[in-house]
């Protein structure tokens, strides 16, 4: 879950419990590698004061049922992401390159498995 864009959730009033955002821990994105040789996969995010406690928290929040054997955490602010507006220029060029897929080529059955 990527870090938020500036939102428009307005009309909130601060309750007398701490200054706004003064004590909010940074947001970390969590990646977990499962047991069966797959790569790390994004599972969600959490707040923690530093990387060490982010890993400890990730263990409690995201691996309560043997979901993984390795955890990566990275501060959400450090992630660079493509934007939805770039979808066209980034991904459309591959649409017309069907020859990149093996099924493009007709190989006679007689040749056997290939």
């Amino acid at each position: 879950m990527s870090s938020p864009e500036s939102g428009s959730y307005d009309a909130t009033e601060a309750a007398p419990h701490g200054k706004p955002r003064a004590t909010e821990w940074p947001l970390w994105e969590v990646f977990i590698r499962g047991q069966h040789g797959l790569s790390h996969r994004h599972v969600g995010s959490l707040h923690a004061a530093d990387a060490e406690s982010a890993i400890k928290n990730a263990r409690d929040v995201y691996t309560r049922r043997n979901e993984g054997v390795s955890i990566w955490v990275v501060e959400a602010a450090a992630i660079a992401a493509s934007s939805p507006e770039e979808k066209g220029p980034l991904y459309e060029p591959s649409n017309d390159k069907v020859y990149r897929h093996p099924t493009f080529f007709d190989i006679p059955d007689d040749v056997g498995a290939m």
Binding site: M1, S6, G7, Y9, A14, H17, L27, L46
Partner: peptide
């Protein structure tokens, strides 16, 4: 964390 992706902070929700 799903709510936070919409642009509200955790502390704001808690408050």
């Amino acid at each position: 964390c799903a709510a936070e992706t919409l642009g509200v902070s955790r502390d704001q929700l808690t408050r």
